[in-house]
Amino acid sequence: MQDTVQTTPATFTAQEPAAVPDRTITYPLRNGSVLAHACPDWCIADHEGDLGGLLMPEDLRHEGKPAVLEFDTIEGTRERILDARIVQYPFASDGSEQPHMELMPDGGSGESTGWLSAAEFNAEIRRAQRHLTSLLHLSEQLAEARAVAHERFVAPGRLTGRGQPWLSLDNGDIETMPVDYLLRVFGVKVVEVDDDSRPAEQLAVLSGEPGEMTLSFKWCVPQVMREQLTRVELLKTRGVGRV
């Protein structure tokens, strides 16, 4: 006779779903009736202005949290270049009744581009990404231009303390100018070492004084990291620990 083992199934208790807050809002309408409508979970509007009894259904607007691109002006003020947020007019009949993206290229103007679907908004994102790539290229071009201008500036007779061209570089220049130019300005000789006695985390060591310096790398450090470490070590000469 074969032995059998009987097991009693454990009692399964279904977990209660998390309570979903009721986002239904009752809006007094202009004609004296009321409108009960559930606010979508992405909407951050408090709808305080909609509860005064002067609302028409087609004027009800839901809006999400904005993504804002800002910049600081030379006067010290902060301006908004681009605002983007999800918007919906649920009772409209002009195409805006579906959730759509609202873009305001000039955040201070209040003028929007219209009603963008997800596909249309993705096209705008790709356009912005291409613009960002162009800005990165311009940044590299600017760093090169500053290096050329600096080299002209430190020509003989143009700088007090001649022979110390590094004094007229600021931290931003060290963070961005071409590394080969920085090595020339600071008078840095680069060497590679195979020194097992050096701590593993000590990948680069800058020694000497500006004008006659030696920057030694462990042989295993790749070129891209060498450029970053060069900037870090040069910034240390200014009392700055990192880029």
Rank of each mutant, 00 (worst) to 15 (best):
Met1His: 08
Asp3Gly: 12
Thr4Gly: 10
Thr4Phe: 10
Val5Cys: 04
Gln6Thr: 12
Thr7Lys: 13
Pro9Phe: 03
Pro9Trp: 00
Gln15Arg: 12
Gln15Tyr: 01
Ala18Thr: 10
Ile25Ala: 08
Thr26His: 07
Thr26Met: 08
Tyr27Asn: 07
Leu29Arg: 00
Leu29Lys: 04
Leu29Met: 06
Leu29Cys: 03
Gly32Leu: 06
Val34Asn: 13
Leu35Ala: 07
Leu35Phe: 03
Leu35Tyr: 06
Cys39Leu: 00
Pro40Lys: 01
Asp41Met: 13
Asp41Phe: 12
Trp42Leu: 02
Cys43His: 00
Ala45Met: 13
Ala45Tyr: 07
Gly49Asp: 09
Asp50Ser: 14
Asp50Phe: 12
Gly52Asp: 15
Leu55Gly: 02
Asp59Lys: 10
Lys65Tyr: 11
Pro66Lys: 02
Val68Cys: 08
Leu69Pro: 05
Glu70Ile: 11
Asp72Ala: 14
Asp72Gln: 14
Gly76Lys: 02
Gly76Leu: 01
Thr77His: 06
Thr77Pro: 01
Arg78Asp: 06
Glu79Leu: 14
Ile81Tyr: 11
Asp83Gly: 08
Tyr89Phe: 00
Pro90Lys: 08
Ser93Ile: 09
Ser93Lys: 14
Ser93Asp: 15
Asp94Trp: 07
Glu97Ser: 09
Gln98Tyr: 14
Gln98His: 14
Pro99Tyr: 03
Met101His: 14
Leu103Pro: 07
Leu103Ile: 06
Leu103Val: 05
Gly108Glu: 11
Gly108Asp: 13
Gly108Lys: 06
Gly110Glu: 01
Ser112Ile: 04
Ser112Gln: 04
Ser112Trp: 05
Glu120Lys: 10
Arg127Trp: 09
Arg127Glu: 10
Ala128Thr: 13
His131Ala: 15
Ser134Gly: 11
Leu136Asp: 15
Leu138Met: 15
Leu142Ser: 13
Glu144Pro: 09
Arg146Ile: 11
Arg146Pro: 10
Ala147Ser: 15
Ala149Asp: 03
Ala149Val: 10
His150Met: 10
Glu151Asp: 15
Val154Glu: 04
Pro156Gln: 05
Arg158Gln: 14
Arg158His: 14
Arg158Trp: 05
Gly161Gln: 05
Arg162Gly: 08
Leu167Val: 08
Leu169Asp: 03
Ile174Phe: 06
Glu175Cys: 13
Glu175Leu: 12
Thr176Arg: 14
Met177Val: 07
Met177Arg: 10
Met177Pro: 07
Met177His: 10
Val179Arg: 02
Leu182Asn: 00
Leu182Gln: 00
Arg184Ser: 12
Phe186Asp: 03
Phe186Val: 04
Val188Gln: 04
Lys189Gln: 14
Val191Met: 01
Glu192Gly: 01
Val193Asn: 05
Asp196Thr: 05
Asp196Gln: 02
Ser197Pro: 04
Ser197Tyr: 08
Arg198Met: 01
Arg198Gln: 00
Pro199Val: 07
Glu201Asn: 09
Glu209Arg: 13
Gly211Tyr: 09
Gly211Phe: 04
Glu212Lys: 09
Met213Leu: 04
Thr214Gly: 01
Leu215Pro: 02
Lys218Gly: 15
Lys218Pro: 06
Trp219Ile: 15
Cys220Asp: 14
Val221Ala: 00
Glu227Asn: 06
Thr230Trp: 05
Thr230Pro: 02
Arg231Tyr: 04
Leu235Pro: 04
Thr237Ala: 10
Gly239Asn: 09
Val240Asn: 08
